[in-house]
Computed example of a mutant assay.
Amino acid sequence: MNLLERRLFISFFSCILCAACAQTPAEWDPSTSVMGNPVAVESASRVIILGPATEQVDVTGGESVAFAVGEKAFAWKFDGSPGVTRVDLMRVAPAGLLNHS
């Protein structure tokens, strides 16, 4: 990641913190617990901007990541089962936030 991208992420993350709504436990599907858990956007260690062309992202087990989609965001802590190597973001994102399959 180059310096411009890092600055963009930091700036965008700062804006997201003001406008984002974190996924609440009431929206959480217990069947996704093997993939991790929803967390507050503010607790994420980094932000990944999801666009229409995004097909996959790389994260590390134990990492908390905020995912930004337009002006909205959600965050997930990838601390589920060690056997899980792929997580479908459509299953863990708040309903209606992601619009591509």
Rank of each mutant, 00 (worst) to 15 (best):
Q23S: 10
L17T: 11
F67N: 04
S45A: 09
N99H: 15
C21R: 15
N2W: 06
T85L: 12
P25V: 11
L8F: 15
E5D: 14
L97V: 12
G61T: 15
T54A: 04
I16W: 00
E27L: 08
G83N: 12
V69G: 12
E27G: 01
C21F: 12
E55D: 09
I16A: 00
N2Y: 07
V92W: 00
I49A: 12
V34N: 13
A53F: 07
L3W: 10
S43F: 01
E55M: 09
C21M: 12
F13G: 02
V41C: 02
P52I: 08
D58T: 15
M90N: 15
V57Y: 05
S43Y: 00
Q23R: 12
E71L: 14
L4W: 10
A44H: 01
E5H: 10
F78E: 00
G51T: 10
S43G: 09
V47T: 05
I49V: 13
I48A: 04
F67D: 00
A75R: 01
I10K: 14
A68H: 04
L4G: 09
P82S: 09
S45I: 08
S81H: 12
R6Q: 10
L89I: 10
I48V: 10
S81T: 01
L17H: 12
M90H: 13
G96W: 06
N99P: 05
G96F: 07
R86K: 11
C18P: 07
P82K: 10
G70S: 08
P82Q: 08
G61D: 06
P30N: 05
I10W: 13
D79F: 01
R6L: 05
V69S: 10
A19E: 08
T54E: 01
L89A: 04
A19V: 13
A40D: 11
A75E: 01
L50V: 12
D29N: 09
F12A: 11
P25L: 09
T85C: 11
E42G: 09
F13Y: 15
I48K: 08
G62L: 00
T54P: 00
A53L: 08
A26G: 08
F78A: 00
A93E: 02
K72V: 05
D79S: 06
D79E: 08
Q56E: 15
P25K: 02
G62S: 03
V84L: 04
E5G: 09
T24L: 06
D88N: 14
P30E: 14
R7Q: 14
V47P: 02
V57Q: 03
A20D: 01
L8S: 13
A20H: 06
L8H: 12
A66L: 07
A66D: 00
A40W: 01
E27I: 11
F78G: 02
M35D: 10
